[in-house]
Nucleic acid binder design. Structure first.
Lengths: 204, 204
DNA sequence: TTCTCTGACTTAACAGTGTAAACTTAACGC
DNA sequence: GCGTTAAGTTTACACTGTTAAGTCAGAGAA
């Protein structure tokens, strides 16, 4: 019979990805199973393997999407802002926002580690690296070395990222003491993350 | 027949726990399955349920152990040290050490989140809370308020924890850029974590 | 038209998971 | 010896990711 479900190939792939994203966002990573996606999209579980090597591959497609969105959001957040310190603050805020507003995405991107990650080299995380370099640029500028990004800036960017990621993770995993006010905590985390970034009037 | 495997009850429970810990440390959380533990310990998978409500319960027993060890290690690390800032530094170092030397433990304790965590209220994480309060005490002392721990100290301790946890997580999950030197990164993370802790000679 | 081939998809199956219910069996008190 | 109880086992269910083999429509060539 003629397929009432999804037209050939490319469209099925897109449907699978759509459905996966949707249930990921709605019900979290744990609810994502091949059979479930297949059921929702109207094909069998094994058909998915015609379009994705395995579950990790599918997951990586979602991760890729998520990283892309995060990247755009970060870029947008500092659009038109000149002051380097303010740029750093905006980037931090924007990162936190992304994590809080897309927590399931965030978990898949930064907390989950796919079983066979080796197979997907850092190529997929190009965007993540670019984000860090972008941040490092702002740090170089804040240090009065605009355009001259050094290794120390990359390192510094990683440290700041670690602070943000740690704060987000503790919050999302509900590991914070119940007495802690989350917003105050995140504010403090950003402040602490940027504590080594010089203010505009105190560049060396 | 007379059991050649493990004597009644309590000893089986202990064996299960031993085996679980061992394969956790040796092969990581993903290798931990009820049937596998059972096989190694010489009973059936369902027997485990006589001693632990479910897999999460077993996991929580391990988490409890791990937290206990971390707690002791932290206490030991500052034994005999007076200077508050140095105490903070030691605590940070000790935390990192624990994470690096017991990475599988660390993951289970702080990164994994058991499916039904709700059922195990923060009681189990008492030690974690105590650790933070302990740290907060050092912070209060560093601020020249020894013995007068305030909410801001607890908050500050959480922020520092977030920095350390973030750094450790990024490293353990191999998310750091390949150009980053891990030890330098961890050093920088500690430095950044403690950037708001006043030096001995500049107490307010 | 018929034949073959190809690509997309399905069916059936494997080996594994956590877990509940029902069954067995050894030990103990009476 | 009897009944009870606790400790373990067997069996089964409903899942999981994944592979190998089978189906079957459509295109191109003879």
């Amino acid at each position: 019979m003629f397929m009432a479900r999804a037209k050939p190939s490319k469209e099925l792939r897109a449907s699978i990805l759509d459905e996966a994203r949707q249930t990921l966002v709605a019900e979290g990573y744990r609810a994502l199973s091949m059979r479930r996606i297949a059921r929702a999209v109207g094909c069998t579980a094994t058909s998915i393997y015609l379009h994705f090597r395995d579950k990790d591959d599918l997951l990586h497609a979602l991760i890729h999407e998520g990283l892309e969105r995060l990247h755009e959001q970060l870029l947008a957040s500092v659009d038109g802002i000149e002051d380097p310190l303010r740029r750093c603050q905006r980037l931090c805020r924007s990162y936190l926002e992304f994590a809080l507003e897309n927590r399931e995405y965030y978990e898949v991107i930064f907390s989950l580690h796919p079983e066979h990650m080796k197979r997907y080299p850092q190529a997929l995380y190009r965007r993540a690296r670019e984000n860090l370099e972008y941040f490092a640029d702002a740090l170089a500028a804040a240090a009065g070395r605009a355009g001259d990004r050094r290794d120390e800036d990359i390192l510094h960017a990683h440290v700041i990222w670690a602070q943000l990621h740690g704060a987000v993770s503790l919050h999302l995993d509900e590991r914070l003491d119940f007495r802690i006010d989350v917003l105050a905590f995140l504010d403090a985390a950003v402040a602490n993350a940027l504590c080594a970034v010089p203010h505009p009037d105190e560049q060396e």
